[in-house]
Write a protein that binds this DNA or RNA. Structure first.
Lengths: 253, 253
DNA sequence: CGTCTAATTGAAGCATCTCAACATGCGTGG
DNA sequence: CCACGCATGTTGAGATGCTTCAATTAGACG
């Protein structure tokens, strides 16, 4: 569905993407690369707004996002939604299921997406064979926890303006790290409602704040594309310091 | 300093406490217990309000909390503080430092505390020798991430009343899991400012909301002690469902 | 073209914040 | 053992960032 100049239309193999992601997290040996290549992965496509994991599920495989965009979310009693994370290609949104049998979160697609399922058994065998690979994945969940901390700071203590700017900075850097950005432009098919639910705001307020950010000439956002017009300014506005992302290398193309 | 009837005055060894904590997370074999017992640990005592880790630090050992109470926090530009997690005995607040060289958070004591330092090298050797133990620790960081998600939901989408009730429920269950609760009573030397900074509120509002919660006969809080007077009611008020804590067993004494 | 979703706008309300006192409790030094 | 001092808790009053409700407009798609 892409037809943009971004590379999202090419849908890499699950193995390739995992390697790319892990490579952005730490060093990979040839032996580890080989082992990853031998993983069995079953491909699936889903439309936008499709639940992939539901609270209470007990998955027996993990899911690598190959293309598109997903999020984790939870619902509160009055029906409101809190998105707790966004997931870009290379991510494994339900990795927790490997060691936490019952899911405490939902995962859904925010755009048409491609996924690959890898059985828990295959992953555990891989970790048995190559314990250092387990450490690398673990490192990944530690980085994710760091992202959570940063989100808490935003939701708890930052203004709507700062919060939104920060989110955009984070997504751009994360996309860059897996080679899915061209400069400071990324494909980002987020709805204003999605942004609101991620940042603990109302859509109305997101809409108005977005106008302010545009008026400040920091970004362009529309038709599923985000462009940072003024990267420095955006980082300042978002009080963004990318240390917490612990990215090994930034690979733009 | 305790002299309460709670068991916090007895300060278990780091090894014992780790075993207790890991036991609340999953199954431990005798062999694993033995290996944990052989860990070297250096003991330290700190006063309340002492920084243990600072943003930017590159620790070469991890810290097990033996007694007392700690938190992770981050500061925003205007000086306001967001607490991102509370840590009770058995926790390892700086575990991320094992795989993330530079700390993206601060850790400080909220009460006089005892700590034990275990060198990274010792931990990594342990994991090399017993990969399943690494998986258990990993499981621990996944549970922590689940707690983060729940906090995000609270800060983003729940009222002050619900948020505070939820926090109390969580702390009580966590204390129970490591045997530090007597029924629904725990030692909790939190300041109203601490609560405010953890939940993204102002101290004034925390004060008023606390009065409401007391008036609803749900809790007693004072002199470093929290009592859930009406556990069911508190859970309802906090929309608390403890699934996300993934506790293996609840051991009250 | 109609239909549906997403974006936008206006207006009124409120949960929570900020500012500013004041009260309480507790450790410490005299 | 009293008095001071500092941290913590409490209260009042006014301000505001953000929400809610309720339309309206703009885009995308068959």
């Amino acid at each position: 569905m892409g037809m943009t100049e971004l590379r999202s239309e090419v849908s890499d193999s699950a193995q390739e993407l995992l390697i790319r992601k892990l490579g952005s997290i730490g060093e990979l040996s040839d032996r580890q690369r080989d082992a990853l290549h031998r993983l069995e992965a079953a491909r699936v496509s889903v439309n936008a707004h499709t639940d992939i994991v539901r609270e209470g599920d007990r998955p027996s495989s993990i899911t690598v996002l190959l293309a598109g965009l997903c999020c984790r979310y939870k619902l509160v009693t009055d029906g409101r939604r809190q998105i707790t994370s966004f997931h870009i290609p290379g991510d494994v949104p339900d990795l927790p299921s490997l060691f936490l049998s019952v899911a405490d979160y939902n995962v859904c697609s925010l755009a048409p997406s491609q996924l690959a399922a890898i059985p828990h058994t295959a992953m555990l065998a891989l970790f048995h064979e190559q314990p250092d690979l387990a450490h690398l994945f673990w490192r990944g969940t530690l980085i994710e926890a760091a992202i959570f901390r940063e989100w808490m700071v935003g939701i708890g203590r930052r203004s709507a303006f700062t919060r939104i700017a920060h989110l955009f900075c984070e997504l751009i850097v994360r996309m860059q790290a897996v080679g899915l950005a061209s400069g400071y432009t990324i494909e980002l098919p987020l709805t204003q409602t999605d942004i609101a639910d991620a940042l603990g705001l109302s859509t109305v307020h997101v809409n108005r704040t977005l106008q302010e950010i545009r008026a400040a000439a920091l970004i362009e956002l529309g038709r599923g594309k985000l462009v940072a017009r003024d990267w420095e300014g955006l980082c300042d506005a978002g009080e963004f310091d990318q240390t917490y992302l612990h990215s090994q290398r930034i690979s733009c193309r």
